[in-house]
Design a protein around this nucleic acid. Structure first.
Lengths: 133, 133
DNA sequence: GTGCGTACTTACCAAAGGAGAGCGACCAGG
DNA sequence: CCTGGTCGCTCTCCTTTGGTAAGTACGCAC
């Protein structure tokens, strides 16, 4: 068995600017559309069921929601608990590791809301400039 | 001219959790793999040429780099300047708006580097748990 | 048995992404 | 004049990913 903790390499060996570095893939994962929204919702609301998440993340397909949840669970960011009641109930919640992502992701989400109008303006200006040529 | 500041809509009308909201698309854009790395590199280094960016972002294809740069330019996050020397020189740098993203993206990148080992450990554990069933 | 609720899972197709060759402008060397 | 080199793209082809929608498994109520 080889756990990550046993590897005593200096942290500087992880660099997302390097091709094939796991930290690049992780960065890609946690920055992906549905992962950001899932983690955000679980951060705001606490434990959530599958159906609630699907409703809150308006527009997500069941396939993508399942896939996103599996990946995040595998990465240790969220915990999946099955309650074998009837009908079955499954709840998702952030792990302590997942909690540490709330801040960074909240900042990113807030940025997109705060600056969307500037960006929309920039797009219009760009399209006018380049459309005329 | 229509600057974003003139639009006095309540900010609450922009919600990335709503289907089709522009802020969701923007969030997706700025969180995408190559955009994060391009903005990060321009933030650390200042103005950069195309070829240097391609080298720094080891593994990016020229097509994706061009595409990412165009999108970011259109969104008003970076400035593209052509110097008609020979051979031609093109430099990219962050706009003031782009600068405001440095913090959030730096936090996200730092998170992925700081926690990659925990995540790798969680993956191993998950694969062991589920592989046996 | 039939139907319902919940949480997936699968099949299919369209869109996005990656690898690599080609392009056009310019100039230097022969 | 022709060849070859540099830079910043651009185009083509093929693989991978994502979206839509239908189907599955489970237990229970009727």
């Amino acid at each position: 068995m080889t756990t990550a903790q046993e590897v005593n390499e200096p942290t500087s060996s992880w660099d997302p600017y390097t091709r094939g570095c796991p930290s690049r893939d992780l960065l890609d994962q946690i920055g992906s559309k549905w992962a950001v929204l899932v983690l955000g919702e679980l951060g705001r609301h606490g434990a959530c069921r599958f159906t609630r998440l699907r409703q809150q993340l308006a527009g997500v397909s069941e396939k993508m929601l399942t896939q996103t949840l599996r990946t995040l669970e595998r990465d240790g960011l969220l915990l999946r608990t099955v309650y074998p009641e009837t009908p079955i109930r499954v709840e998702y919640e952030l792990t302590p590791l997942g909690q540490t992502l709330r801040g960074p992701l909240k900042a990113l989400t807030a940025w997109s809301v705060e600056h969307i109008e500037e960006v929309l303006g920039a797009r219009e200006e760009y399209d006018e400039r380049t459309g005329k040529r």
